[in-house]
Write a protein that binds this DNA or RNA. Structure first.
Lengths: 207, 207
DNA sequence: TAGATTGTTAATCGATTAACAATC
DNA sequence: TAGATTGTTAATCGATTAACAATC
C-alpha cells in the first residue's frame, strides 16, 4: 500500500465514509458506489473515489465497493481495527453523559476510566464506572497505558488537565471545554464546542 | 459594509476568533493583533487579517484590534447581537447535559425547551426546564417561534425528528445523533459526533 | 457483450501565504 | 518621527472536479 502524505482534510473525511458504510451494512446492504455514498454525505463521487484510491484500489469497475470489505479497510487505515481505551476527565454533566454513552463501542473506543477532583463525586458510580480521584489520574492512566482522553472540565482547568494527561502519556485529546489547548508536537487535539457550531449557522439566519 | 459572498470556510473561523477574543476580554485585555490571535488559534496572521477585512476595516495600523469593538462586530456579523432561543429534543444523557449546560448563555443562545417521548420523563425537571411531551413538540416550537434545535435522540429517530422540526419552522439543527440528516434548502445542519473526532486522531497514532 | 463504475489524469477552481504600501 | 501593524494585492499552493480509458 503506497503510503504518501495524506492531506488532513482527506483523513477527516474517512471517518464519515466509515460511518455511512456501517449504517449501510446495518441496513443489510452488500455493495455501494461512490455516487451513492456521495449523495448520502453531500460529497462528490469523484472526491470519494480520489480519497479512497490514495490508499489502494478498493473498488471494482462496473460494480462499486464491497461494503464490509471497505469497512475493514477503513478501520485498518484509521487504526481502529482494535479498540482503544479512553479516559474521561470531569464527571459533570457532559463527562457523565459521555462516560455513560454506548455509541463508542462499535466505533473503536471503550471508556474505561473517569476522574473528578470533587470529593463528593469520587467513589460514585457513573454508568458502569466508578469515579476516581483526579489526584491519582496521572498514575492510573500511565499504569493502564491509556493514550486517549476526553476533557470535560471547566475552561479554567482544561489546560492543566491537558498538561497532566500529556505527561501521563496521552497522545490524543478530545476537548469539550471551550478553550484552545497548547500541547507538544505528537499530541493531537480535537474540539467539541456546540456554540461554535450554532454560531456557524446563525450567520446564515435572519430574524 | 460590502457584503460579498463569504466562503463558508471563512464563516467557520469567525466563531473561533470570537471565542478567543471573549477569552482575552475576560483576561482584562484591551487590544490584540492578528499575530497574537493567530498564535492562540494556530492560524496565520495573514489569514485572520484577510478574513476580518472581508467585513470591513476593524483594525488600526500600528496598533491592532480593539478587543471589545471586534467582539461587537463579530457578534453582529454572526447574528448573535441578540440571543436565540433553542429547543433540545431528547432528554437522555446528552440532551439533559446540554439542557443543563450554562456555557451557551454568553455565546448567544438560551435553551428554552426540552422534549422527550418517554412518558417516564415527560413532566420531570432537567435543570431549570420541565421536559415536555414530544407529541406536542411541533405545536409548542411553532408557537414559541423557536428557530434553532438540538437533536439528541437515538439515530433511528433522528430523521423523523428533523422532519418535524423543519415543519415547525426550525432553520438550524445541531445534530448529536451519529447519522446524516436530509433537510430542505434554507435549513442548516451541523453535526457533533465524538467518534468521528477520535477516529480522525487515531489515524495518526500507532500502537 | 453491453452497461456500469472505478482509478487516474489534467484542468479548474479556490484558499492560503508572502509581501508591502498605507498609516496609526 | 520611528516602529508597528493593518488591509490588500499578487503569487503560490492545494483541493476539487471533469472527463475518460480501463475493466469488471
Amino acid at each position: 500500500m503506497p503510503v504518501k502524505h495524506i492531506p488532513d482534510i482527506v483523513v477527516g473525511r474517512l471517518p464519515q465514509y466509515l460511518r455511512s458504510l456501517q449504517r449501510m451494512a446495518l441496513e443489510g446492504r452488500q455493495v455501494t458506489s461512490s455516487q451513492e455514498l456521495g449523495e448520502r454525505l453531500g460529497i462528490s463521487a469523484a472526491q470519494i473515489r480520489k480519497d479512497l484510491s490514495q490508499f489502494g484500489g478498493f473498488g471494482k469497475q462496473g460494480t462499486g465497493y464491497d461494503i464490509s470489505f471497505l469497512i475493514r479497510q477503513l478501520r485498518t487505515i484509521l487504526n481502529i481495527d482494535h479498540d482503544w481505551d479512553v479516559a474521561v476527565v470531569g464527571a459533570g454533566g457532559i463527562g457523565s453523559a459521555v462516560a455513560r454513552y454506548h455509541g463508542f463501542t462499535d466505533r473503536g473506543f471503550n471508556v474505561r476510566l473517569i476522574f473528578d477532583s470533587d470529593p463528593e463525586k469520587v467513589g460514585t458510580q457513573v454508568g458502569e464506572h466508578t469515579v476516581q480521584d483526579y489526584a491519582q489520574m496521572a498514575e492510573i492512566i500511565e499504569q493502564a497505558g491509556v493514550h486517549i482522553a476526553m476533557i470535560a472540565v471547566p475552561s479554567a482547568d482544561a489546560q492543566d488537565v491537558a498538561d497532566k494527561l500529556v505527561k501521563a502519556g496521552v497522545k490524543a485529546i478530545l476537548n469539550y471545554a471551550p478553550i484552545s489547548l497548547n500541547v507538544p508536537p505528537g499530541v493531537y487535539v480535537q474540539y467539541i464546542d456546540p456554540s461554535i457550531h450554532l454560531q456557524r449557522m446563525t450567520y446564515y439566519l435572519s430574524r
